[in-house]
């Protein structure tokens, strides 16, 4: 059960790229132990929000506080306790899996790195990939290796950008179950973006639906479905994408 203490606080984030406004005053929090889903159709501002939260892009205005500290003032201190995995990044393909993990373990100053790597490979059921070349892994294996990298430093906050994209339903289901288990066992806070509504329903305690750079809906998946009178999140998503659902009931 998530506590009320916010681990992450995004406050009135605005991001303008030239003539286009990607985010219009986005505010939300992630509580300790909570998994928050960030959804939206393409161009809604999810990726921009994620990049602002990771410090990859600077906001036009607004602040990001993580663990109570300003992201830009305490970036290194914060990043030591945060990690990230995305379907759109990969680890150097020409290194072995253990070599990649060893490098990131050193970057994150993981104590007893060899032990931690072995532990994660076992948890993620990829011990057999230890000496494999990273670039020769299947999509499912690669996702799990990326997750191993993201869990190396026992992060307090994990940002996952479409972790199940390009996975078959079986592997996606395994990844979701694994995340749920890790979240329960470690009290990890997670910010999760996905286009897969099943991910959101199964993994997230709460969700935010972005549309045009603003929050269109916020609540538990069930609350959002009820408020917009939709049978499923997928129907809700399609309704927004096709302009059939107006921005009502924003909270």
């Amino acid at each position: 059960m998530p506590s009320a203490t916010p681990i992450l606080e995004a406050d009135r984030l605005v991001k303008v790229f030239g003539d286009s406004t990607a985010l219009e005053g986005l505010s939300f929090t992630v509580a300790e132990g909570e998994t928050l889903g960030l959804l939206g159709v393409n161009g809604a501002g999810k990726t921009t929000a994620m990049n602002l939260l990771l410090g990859l892009t600077t906001p036009t205005s607004g602040t990001v506080r993580i663990f109570g500290m300003d992201l830009w003032k305490h970036r290194i201190k914060i990043l030591r306790q945060v990690n990230f995995s995305s379907a759109y990044t990969s680890l150097p393909s020409n290194l072995l899996v253990w070599q990649n993990l060893a490098v990131f373990a050193r970057l994150y100053r993981v104590p007893h790195p060899k032990q931690r790597i072995d532990e994660l490979l076992e948890v993620l059921d990829i011990t057999q990939l230890r000496n494999s070349v990273t670039g020769r892994l299947s999509a499912g294996e690669s996702t799990r290796v990326n997750l191993a990298k993201a869990l190396l430093n026992k992060p307090r906050l994990l940002l996952l950008d479409e972790p199940t994209a390009s996975l078959d339903p079986d592997i996606a289901d395994r990844v979701r179950k694994l995340l749920r288990r890790l979240q329960t066992e470690t009290g990890l806070s997670v910010l999760y973006t996905s286009h897969n509504m099943r991910d959101i329903e199964e993994v997230c305690d709460r969700m935010i639906f972005l549309h045009g750079g603003k929050v269109l809906a916020e609540g538990t998946p069930d609350e959002v479905k009820t408020r917009f009178n939709q049978a499923s999140l997928e129907d809700f998503f399609i309704g927004v994408a096709r302009g059939e659902i107006e921005a009502i009931g924003i909270q």
Binding site: I76, L79, L91, L107
Partner: peptide, 13 residues
């Protein structure tokens, strides 16, 4: 190798 983001979101100055 599309690893740049991993490095830039790690605690690296």
């Amino acid at each position: 190798t599309r690893n740049l983001l991993n490095v830039f979101v790690a605690p690296v100055r």
